[in-house]
């Protein structure tokens, strides 16, 4: 295919040099560290992140304006956090002129559509200073996470310490050290249906996108895509925020990222095709034009 990884200026395997961030990070602590650096140096005034919600493991989009708030939002929650819902509010009630936002590939698509077609986003587009995308195969509704944790992994959500998808498993780890890996075959049916038409795996439209795939445990793969992304990434590296390794020096490397990207895009392109003939002489709507 060739376009599955999107445009990028550079790609590395990276890890935060901040031990405190790494302690609660999903992988290499890239998003938290980059936002913390951008916040402290005034590149952004605040960042929209998936903060803690009212229920265990239910994220709530928040506008983080302090490093403490960023730290509280570390880690992947594997269910929906409508971060874009705050993109206008961040520039209004919060009064931010330089907004950071983290999101899934679809949320990056929403942000960029919003910049080029700001139908209801007056004066927002040029205030988006740093959009960080995270690799995403699919997402889950909150209730699916409840179902998976409590029904399949036999853990109360309150006692789940970490969730992780990798190596073909959705793994639940409890506070007391229980580890329950669920085969993805089991979890597939609980995925959010809207994810099955998504044609982007590595957040092609972000300034910087990152995810665990391709890098060793505890490290993240990072794509630097835009001028803005390049600028802030270079500054963060110069400030010593990250240690990096050349992506072609690590295993499994870009080969796996490419493979998974093609798997996702291929599968979902098929779903999009099938929508055309979903009924009898009637199809489902396709958003792509």
């Amino acid at each position: 295919m060739g376009a599955e990884l999107g445009k990028y200026k550079s790609c590395v395997s990276a890890r935060s040099t901040d031990k405190a961030i790494l302690a609660g990070a999903q992988d290499g602590g890239i998003v938290t560290t980059l936002f913390a650096y951008a916040l402290e140096t005034g590149i952004i005034d605040g960042a929209i992140v998936a903060g803690p919600g009212e229920l265990p493991w239910k994220p709530k989009p928040i506008v983080a304006t302090t490093v403490e708030e960023l730290l509280a939002a570390r880690g992947t929650k594997y269910n929906i956090s409508p971060n874009v819902s705050l993109i206008k509010e961040a520039t209004r009630s919060y009064g931010l002129d330089k907004v950071g936002i983290v999101g899934t590939p679809c949320q990056m698509q929403a942000v960029r559509k919003g910049q080029l077609y700001p139908i209801g986003l007056r004066d927002v587009g040029d205030k988006i200073a740093l959009a960080i995308g995270i690799f995403c195969m699919e997402n889950f509704p909150y209730q699916s996470i409840v179902q998976l944790a409590e029904d399949h992994a036999a853990m109360k959500l309150e006692s789940v310490a970490k969730m992780e998808i990798g190596k073909g498993k959705f793994t639940f780890m409890s506070e007391r050290g229980a580890v329950v890996p669920l085969p993805l075959k089991v979890t597939h049916k609980y995925e959010q249906p809207g994810c099955h038409v998504c044609l982007d795996y590595v957040a092609n439209l972000a300034d910087v996108s990152t995810g665990s795939v391709g890098s060793p445990d505890g490290w993240s793969t990072v794509f630097v895509r835009t001028k803005k992304g390049d600028d802030v990434w270079a500054k963060a590296i110069a400030a010593g925020c990250f240690e990096t390794k050349a992506i072609d020096s690590v295993k499994p490397g870009l080969e796996l990222v490419t493979k998974l990207a093609n798997e996702k895009i291929g599968k979902n392109q098929k779903t999009v095709e099938e929508r055309k003939t979903f009924g009898v002489g009637k199809g489902l709507r396709i958003p792509y034009i």
């Binding site: 929906i80 209801g120 509704p141 249906p193 038409v197 489902l284």
Partner: peptide, 29 residues
């Protein structure tokens, strides 16, 4: 046109765009 068609992925754009703040998100939708 979006949710019933199985296309919504809960990004939040609609709530941000609404000029009268009529839209919130419950469990991501």
């Amino acid at each position: 046109e979006v949710i019933d068609q199985g296309l919504c992925m809960g990004c939040g754009s609609c709530a941000a765009a609404c000029p009268v703040r009529a839209i919130t998100h419950e469990f991501g939708k």
